[in-house]
Write a protein that binds this DNA or RNA. Structure first.
Lengths: 209, 209
DNA sequence: TTTGACGTAGAACATATGTTCCTTCTATAA
DNA sequence: TTATAGAAGGAACATATGTTCTACGTCAAA
């Protein structure tokens, strides 16, 4: 029973997408109508409600431009705290200086659940190449001091005084940590558990070319 | 001369960011005022104009919620056309079936200039590991049949019947193509120019973990 | 002190924009 | 055919929302 979209509804969705991309905010009912070739505002509203019922968007009553696509195309501004270099610890998102962010990068919403403790770093140098991360990449991080097996974490190697991004595995009854590169062409590193400090979890990588 | 932001303006920017994340569209002047502790709409408007002059956002006259942050947090919905597997040619974004997209992924605006001919593919398998791309990654592509030196392209190797993502270099007076992995630990491939077909240019990679 | 730029308030105003209501048209079931 | 529901069109309406104008306080230059 009509869970598919009418041609008109497909068109409306497309119009909204295009509009948001162009202007950065959703269109009004009249703008949708104009772009979709619908003269009556009530008809647009009618179809918008139908689209909401079918789960393609959300409306906010009595609110101008008060709609949002389910596809959720909004990207979250994440503070870009600086560069990550192999020889230095990772800067922590301190409450002290939230203004310290160099800039912000847009991160696709799907990549995030809650936005607290999330920050980004631009990678300098190719020291992370064995974890498939190159010079210039942006890594999206969640700040945390512990990790579960299988997490890709930023680990501070106490002896080497180096940060590295690797897959975390606690072994030998918690005595030893295996840091597994995400690139199968490279070998894991084994370190005594007390010689590793977790600085955060890697939740995403964004590379522009 | 006052290119810095006043405390109030910082606050307004923050309010807008939070609001957009929460609702998917920008706040009204009154909503900004309420959240920032400003009683007068004209003051909000005044500071919005100041922020526009300083380049932090754009306003659209007489338009409700007609503002957009320069940081450009909108992500663009890009059609996710399918999987890329080493043994098969890359699906082309055909006008025939624009509905063929499996899904859409949000791509940070900065990654894109114009949105035509852009599509995304999910990588299956680790055959692209030498270009720092792993199983599960999403590659953002621009469809094109030619490439310039230094572009990272999706290349179809005629003899091997394989697609690979590599840096493109035309050498030997156009006779030979060098396909350079983006990972310095791997060696380049040399192919006769007529044995390579460009299928598109890689403009970005998104990895969620 | 006076002047003027800047930031702030509050109220009035104009209009941008969602909603409601009444009709009309079509298609399908009774 | 008649009845009923879905979809569409148009106009009137209510209000959400940006703009304008006047006034006030502060601060630095003249």
């Amino acid at each position: 029973m009509a869970n598919e979209l009418s041609e008109r509804q497909e068109r409306i969705l497309e119009v909204i997408r295009d509009y948001v991309v162009e202007y950065g905010y959703p269109p009004t009912i009249r703008e949708i109508g104009e772009a979709a070739g619908i003269s009556s505002t009530s008809v647009v509203s009618y179809n918008l409600n139908a689209l909401e019922k079918k789960g393609h968007l959300t409306r906010n009553k009595d609110t101008s431009r008060g709609l949002r696509l389910r596809e959720e195309m909004i990207a979250i501004p994440v503070p870009l705290l600086g560069n990550i270099v192999a020889g230095e610890p990772i800067p922590i998102p301190g409450n002290e200086a939230p203004e310290a962010a160099l800039d912000h990068v847009a991160v696709p919403t799907e990549m995030l659940t809650n936005t607290d403790d999330i920050y980004a770093l631009r990678v300098r140098g190719n020291s992370m190449i064995d974890s498939l991360i190159a010079d210039g990449d942006v890594v999206v991080m969640r700040h945390q001091r512990s990790a579960e097996n299988g997490d890709t974490v930023a680990a501070w190697l106490v002896d080497e005084e180096t940060v590295t991004l690797k897959e975390f595995h606690l072994e030998a009854g918690g005595q030893r940590v295996r840091l597994q590169p995400r690139n199968p062409a490279f070998d894991p590193i084994y370190v005594r558990a007390d010689k590793v400090e977790i600085q955060g979890k890697v939740i995403g990588v964004i590379r522009e070319m």
